[in-house]
Design a protein around this nucleic acid. Structure first.
Lengths: 143, 143
DNA sequence: ATCTATACTTACCCAAAAGAGAGTGTCAGT
DNA sequence: ACTGACACTCTCTTTTGGGTAAGTATAGAT
């Protein structure tokens, strides 16, 4: 898959949602790239870290782990590194002993948090309706 | 974990993003529930199916598979069933031979598509910046 | 001299998720 | 009689995600 992206393709991706999307043909390569990105960026732990840092501001390793609860050191390190690599957060090492490392979201990280808000709100608003739909479906198919 | 949700908790979830979230204490149970929901609803294949059905309208099994590309029958069936159960799409079986089954998004499915738009747009807008961040990170850490 | 705190890394392991591929039922067409 | 179309379902294998536990470095406290 081609990792480069033309201006036109980005314009398409942007236009995708804002316009009436009746017969807008989106280049499959844009889709592939955006999906690959979403797959990495929107995983469980990343979302939780974003949430914690959004509400807590700058925090250090152990405090993030406590705030999330139920994450292993391994997974937290992994997630944090990935997010740093993607430019979603900055990692500041204070060379003291014992070690002290701070994490905070970048502007891009903040903007991702905002983008997620739509989905987050949707989930809050539709939670009950989904649970109802599930109950009905299960009742229907149990027969 | 308690699967029920009070009116107050839903209000909190809704308020979470719209307000200044400085020191808004969100009930951890709301978070747990919304995350569970997002985990199921926002997975890779569900997003792709929503995308395809949003642009393509009512479609049948094989056409969806073609449009997505690279999905196994098993995963498509599984995703579609789950979405039906959650009330995101309706499955219409025409009892003819060979079988003919149509899928289309419900209103709730459409609204989820809209909610995803924020993230989708974000991905389109930040793709290049992320790729740049990655290159820089890799250059930095390769030393 | 030993313990503690902090932020990791490494090695090993398991379970769940996903992919590959074959099988199923039925009728219409050749 | 055989093939193909469609929407699956079943089984088997591979991949991935993620947990546990141990190790590392070093200053300061006990």
């Amino acid at each position: 898959m081609n990792p480069s992206l033309t201006k036109k393709q980005i314009a398409q991706a942007k236009a995708y949602c804002t316009s009436e999307r009746a017969d807008l043909e989106v280049d499959p390569r844009v889709e592939a790239l955006v999906n690959e990105l979403l797959g990495r960026v929107a995983d469980k732990w990343t979302m939780l870290v974003i949430e914690v840092l959004t509400t807590g501001g700058e925090m250090r390793f152990t405090r993030i782990a406590e705030a999330i609860g139920g994450i292993s050191q391994k997974m937290l390190t992994q997630t944090l590194r990935q997010m740093e690599r993607d430019g979603l957060l900055v990692r500041t090492v204070h060379p003291v002993i014992p070690p002290h490392v701070d994490y905070r979201l970048t502007k891009m990280g903040d903007s991702l948090a905002e983008a997620f808000c739509g989905v987050w709100q949707w989930a809050g608003q539709h939670l009950e309706r989904i649970e109802k739909a599930r109950r009905e479906f299960d009742a229907r198919t149990a027969k």
